[in-house]
Design a protein around this nucleic acid. Structure first.
Length: 291
DNA sequence: ACCGCACCCTGAGCGC
DNA sequence: TGCGCTCAGGGTGCGG
C-alpha cells in the first residue's frame, strides 16, 4: 500500500515512540515469508536493544540499534506500523467491524495479522506491525551487514533530478511508468504517485522511456518531488486501507487527478480518464492531456 | 542485459 | 447467502 509519503509519515510518527526505549520483548506470529529473519532469532536479537535512529530508504525503514545491528522494515501493500492505543475502524475488516460494538472498536487489539509486537522495558505503549497480505518484510542485519534490497536502491524520490531520469531512461525501451517505478532508478515512487506525476507532466504512462525528451525528464522529476512532498504535507493517501500511525486518514486522495478515476472526467479538460494495465499495474491517464 | 509475466497472501466488492 | 471472479498502494525471481 504505502509509497514514499506514507512510509515517511510512518517514520516521523513512529520515531518518537521507538527511539531511546530499551526493548523488553518481541512477540510475533508464526514463521512465514514475512519474516526474512526467523521469529525466534528476531526475538533473541532484539531483546535488550535500544533503537538509536529510524531512517527511510525509498519505501524501506531501517531501525538502527545500539549494538550496531539494524532492523529492516518494509510495509509491502498492506503493512501498518503503529503505536499501541491507536484507534481506527480501518484497522478492522468489515466483518470484524460488524461484529463489534463501537466501544470495542475504539482501541485495536492485536489479531492474527499483527505479526510483530515490540514491548519496552519502561512498560509504555508497544509498537506494532500489522500486515494482512504479508507482502511486508522484517529482517535483522548484523553490525556491518549489507543488504541487496537497500544497496540497489536508486536516488531517493524526494531528490530525483531530470538528469537521473534522462540518463536511466534513454537506454531503455520500457514504458515511462515502469522507469518511474523502478526502485533501482528512483526509490520511493509507487503506482499512485507514478500516475499522478505522469499526468502533471503531460506524459503518457505507455510512452517508451527512451522517447522522453530532456525537458520532459526535468518536468517529470519536478512533478515527482512535488506530488510526494504535497502528499506528505496532507498526510498521505488513504485510498484503500492506509491510515497513519495515529489512526487518521490522509488527505492526498482528495487531490488525485487520475489515480483510480477511470471513466471520470479529467479535472483539466473533462475527457474521461482511461484505465489500462502497464507492467501488471492498474494505470490511469487522460488521453487528451497526456501524449 | 533486458523484459514480461507468474507468484507470494488476504480481503472487499461485484454479478449471478 | 453463497460462489466465483476481479482487483488491490509491494517486490522477487524465472524464463524467453
Amino acid at each position: 500500500m504505502p509509497e514514499l509519503p506514507e512510509v515517511e509519515i510512518t517514520r516521523r510518527k513512529i520515531a518518537s515512540s521507538l527511539l531511546g526505549r530499551a526493548i523488553a520483548a518481541v512477540h510475533t506470529t508464526a514463521e512465514s515469508y514475512f519474516f526474512l529473519t526467523p521469529p525466534a532469532e528476531l526475538k533473541r536479537r532484539l531483546k535488550g536493544r535500544t533503537v538509536t535512529a529510524l531512517t527511510r530508504h525509498g519505501k524501506y525503514l531501517v531501525a538502527e540499534l545500539d549494538d550496531g545491528s539494524r532492523l529492516l522494515l518494509h510495509l509491502g501493500m498492506t503493512g501498518q506500523l503503529f503505536v499501541q492505543g491507536s484507534s481506527s475502524p480501518r484497522l478492522l475488516s468489515s466483518t470484524a467491524r460488524a461484529s463489534l460494538k463501537p466501544a470495542e472498536q475504539a482501541v485495536f487489539k492485536p489479531d492474527h495479522h499483527t505479526h510483530l509486537r515490540i514491548a519496552f522495558a519502561d512498560g509504555g505503549p508497544e509498537v506494532w506491525f500489522r500486515d494482512v497480505r504479508k507482502f511486508g518484510k522484517v529482517k535483522w542485519l548484523a553490525p556491518g551487514e549489507s543488504d541487496q534490497r537497500l544497496d540497489k536502491l536508486g536516488t531517493d524520490a524526494l531528490e530525483v533530478t531530470g538528469e537521473t531520469l534522462w540518463q536511466a531512461g534513454r537506454k531503455k525501451s520500457v514504458a515511462a511508468k515502469n522507469l518511474v517505478m523502478d526502485q533501482a532508478v528512483i526509490a520511493g515512487v509507487g503506482n499512485i504517485y507514478a500516475d499522478e506525476a505522469l499526468f502533471l507532466s503531460g506524459v503518457r504512462p505507455t510512452r517508451k522511456a527512451g522517447k522522453l525528451t530532456r525537458r520532459e525528464c526535468e518536468a517529470l522529476a519536478a512533478n515527482i518531488r512535488k506530488v510526494l512532498q504535497r502528499s506528505i504535507e496532507t498526510g498521505g493517501s488513504s485510498i484503500s486501507d492506509w491510515i497513519n500511525p495515529d489512526g487518521q486518514d490522509g488527505g492526498y486522495q482528495d487531490e488525485r487527478m487520475v489515480y483510480a478515476r477511470g471513466g471520470q472526467p479529467c479535472k483539466v479538460c473533462g475527457t474521461p480518464i482511461k484505465r489500462i494495465t502497464v507492467g501488471q499495474r492498474g494505470t490511469h491517464y487522460c488521453p487528451k492531456c497526456q501524449s
